[in-house]
C-alpha cells in the first residue's frame, strides 16, 4: 500500500489536475501549484543525489577498489565546488560592504573561476569529441548495401555539401531559375519536405505513445517504476 498504491494515487491526482487545468481556466492555479511542488521535490532530489555520490565514492576509497584515486578526485571536486559556493569564497563585497550579500556566481569569485576555467572547458571538450565520433561512425556505418542505404547515402552527400560553401560552388553553373537543383536548393527541399514528413510521422507516433503510456501510469496499469514488478 505505502510503496505502491499511495505513490500511484499521487501521480494519478496530479496528472488529472494538470489535464483538467488545460481545459478549465479556474483550475490553472492548481496546475501552477503542482508545478511548484514538483520543483520543491526536485530540489530535495539534489540532496539525495549528493548523498549517494558521496557514499559511492567513499565506499570505493575505503575498499581501495581499482580506480579509487578517481573516486577521490571526484569527491574532492564535489566538496570544493560545494564549499566555495556555500561559503561564497572570493565573492566581491556588495554595495553595503558585505561579502555575503553578493552572488556566489559573481565575477571574480572562486565559484565563477571554477565555472569559467574548469567546468566550461571540460564539458566543451567532451562535447567536441562528437566531431571525432561522427567521423569514425561515417567511416564505419554508412554502407552502400541495399536500396534504403543507398538513398540514405545520397541524402547524406547532398545535405553535407548543401550546408557548406562547397555545395554552392559545385553547382554554381546551374542557372538561377533552376536553383532548386543546386546542392543548397536540394538541401532545403530535403529538410523542408522529406525530413519534415518523416519527422511529423515519427512525432505523431511518439505523441500517441506518450499519451497511451501516460494513461497507463494514471490508471495504474504501468507501475514498474514503483517496483511492482509488473509491466
Amino acid at each position: 500500500m505505502l510503496r505502491n498504491t499511495i505513490p500511484w494515487l499521487i501521480a494519478a491526482c496530479a496528472g488529472s489536475v494538470i489535464i483538467a487545468a488545460y481545459f478549465v481556466p479556474s483550475a490553472q492555479g492548481w496546475q501552477d501549484t503542482i508545478g511548484q511542488w514538483f520543483e520543491v521535490l526536485a530540489s530535495f532530489a539534489f540532496v539525495l543525489g549528493g548523498v549517494n555520490l558521496a557514499m559511492q565514492n567513499l565506499q570505493k576509497i575505503s575498499a581501495r577498489e581499482p580506480g579509487w584515486g578517481y573516486a577521490a578526485v571526484t569527491l574532492m571536486s564535489f566538496l570544493v565546488t560545494l564549499g566555495v559556493g556555500l561559503f561564497k569564497v572570493g565573492v566581491p563585497a556588495d554595495s553595503s560592504g558585505s561579502r555575503w550579500g553578493g552572488s556566489y556566481q559573481a565575477e571574480g569569485s572562486a565559484f565563477w573561476w571554477l565555472y569559467e576555467y574548469a567546468y566550461n572547458p571540460t564539458i566543451s571538450t567532451i562535447f567536441a569529441l562528437l566531431a571525432f565520433y561522427v567521423a569514425s561512425a561515417a567511416f564505419r556505418a554508412f554502407r552502400w548495401k541495399n536500396t534504403e542505404a543507398t538513398l540514405l547515402l545520397a541524402t547524406a552527400f547532398i545535405v553535407l555539401l548543401g550546408r557548406t560553401y562547397a555545395g554552392a560552388v559545385l553547382t554554381s553553373a546551374i542557372p538561377e531559375e533552376y536553383s532548386a537543383f543546386t546542392f543548397p536548393g536540394l538541401t532545403t527541399l530535403i529538410m523542408g519536405v522529406v525530413n519534415t514528413a518523416g519527422q511529423r510521422a515519427i512525432m505523431i507516433g511518439i505523441a500517441l505513445g506518450v499519451a497511451a503510456t501516460s494513461l497507463k501510469v494514471l490508471l495504474g496499469i504501468n507501475r514498474s517504476y514503483l517496483g511492482s514488478g509488473d509491466g
Binding site: V134, A138, F139, F142, L161
Partner: peptide, 23 residues
C-alpha cells in the same frame, strides 16, 4: 564556416573510403 566546410568534405571522403573498403 570554413572549418565546417573542410570537416564536411572529410566526412564525405571517409564515407567513400569506408564503402571502398567494404566493397
Amino acid at each position: 564556416m570554413a572549418p565546417q566546410l573542410w570537416a564536411h568534405l572529410l566526412i564525405i571522403a571517409l564515407i567513400v573510403l569506408g564503402n571502398v573498403a567494404a566493397l
